[in-house]
Nucleic acid binder design. Sequence first.
DNA 1: TCGATTGTGACACAATTTTGACATTAATGA
DNA 2: TCATTAATGTCAAAATTGTGTCACAATCGA
Lengths: 230, 230
Amino acid sequence: MNIRILLVEDEDNLRDTIKLNLELEGYHIIAVNNGLDALQYARSERFNLVILDIMLPKMNGLEVCQRLQIENKDIPVLFLSAKNATEDRIAGLKMGAQDYLTKPFNLEELLLRVGILIKTHQKGDFQSEINYITIGNCSIDFQSYEVKTPTGVVSISKKEAMLLKLLYEKKNQVVSREEILEKVWGYDIYINTRTIDNFMLNLRKIFEPNLKEPVFFHSVRGIGYKLNLA
Amino acid sequence: MNIRILLVEDEDNLRDTIKLNLELEGYHIIAVNNGLDALQYARSERFNLVILDIMLPKMNGLEVCQRLQIENKDIPVLFLSAKNATEDRIAGLKMGAQDYLTKPFNLEELLLRVGILIKTHQKGDFQSEINYITIGNCSIDFQSYEVKTPTGVVSISKKEAMLLKLLYEKKNQVVSREEILEKVWGYDIYINTRTIDNFMLNLRKIFEPNLKEPVFFHSVRGIGYKLNLA
DNA sequence: TCGATTGTGACACAATTTTGACATTAATGA
DNA sequence: TCATTAATGTCAAAATTGTGTCACAATCGA
């Protein structure tokens, strides 16, 4: 299933313990010990969850969380904190954290909460059973990989279909290149960034009446692509 | 939005307090005081969330939750409990609860957690608060990077969106130029001071009816900028 | 193997971001 | 009060960066 968790904790023992236990659960863990490294990792790779200590060297957890928010990263955050103080909890929750655990915590409880967070956040994942959609005056049949256009029937490839499905599931929202890469190409594949553009080009050639004035497949500079549908 | 919450709590005062506060948040609350009634309601109507005390007359909360699970009701459950005992928490979480609060709890924390649970459980394209904000009579959608203004839809760039988010998170507070530079541009970047002003100018052009008399985006000489919202 | 699909690099092109010039406004002190 | 100084407002041009597009190379599947 390849679920990736970014663990940010500066106490070495605790970090190692958590890492070990999460790995035993089958998760893939990247563990770092300070806020800046956390931010860098979060920016450059994709994670299903961030477990974030509040008190951290270099940059505290709340700030890391805030910056991820500002950068529009859509990752659930589970805060850890030595403080039991309600204000801290509330600050964390307001900052966009999905959950909060106070140290010392029971390991089993952590594992349970991690499981819950990942499960509930995965609903947005795309493995839907959409098999028939319409874009403009074209209709796409995902079972036969065929597109009916006004000028005839075109067949699309598997990757084109995946991309199309992803964009359709997030229609009217920008889907980041990162997310496209992750969900269509998979985490560990490194492909040239031109590849995505080429696929978009192909889709546009099929669906856009005028290539120079895309109506459906919009590019959003610096972010990704968006499929506009009424 | 019509979000329905089933509240199950046998202490009358606490139940009324919670009910009142949740209603003030705009939720529709059905409140009952025992497990059997809870189960009946859960079976006959649809709820977005169940807030469930553990110790209840007639049938305890854990059992109610378990039965809902067995009956395949896919409702998030937030447990309340007087016991701080970890085993109880774990039992609750294992039983399929999404979250857990120990009495006595802070009301604001309850409201935040309720908000989070509902938000994350909502299927489809529900927009979370941070993804959708309002300034004056404009609304900003951070998923599509678009701003709806009275005169039409404008799209904003990534940096403009980041700046907006930062100002919004600190609304009615002055955000220093340094903080803006750090959080939007990154700590090691070295740019001309005019750059920030230019971005503010762009935001004002979008949101301010009268550029000469900014209502929302105030500059605070020598310090930074402030987003004023009611 | 062959044909279809997918990936690469070059280059042109377009949008955003940055810069610097200059105008304007606010604070300071004689 | 007014001149002085410094910070901000504003614009348009320049620099930078991301994207569009193509031809071709590599890879995959039957």
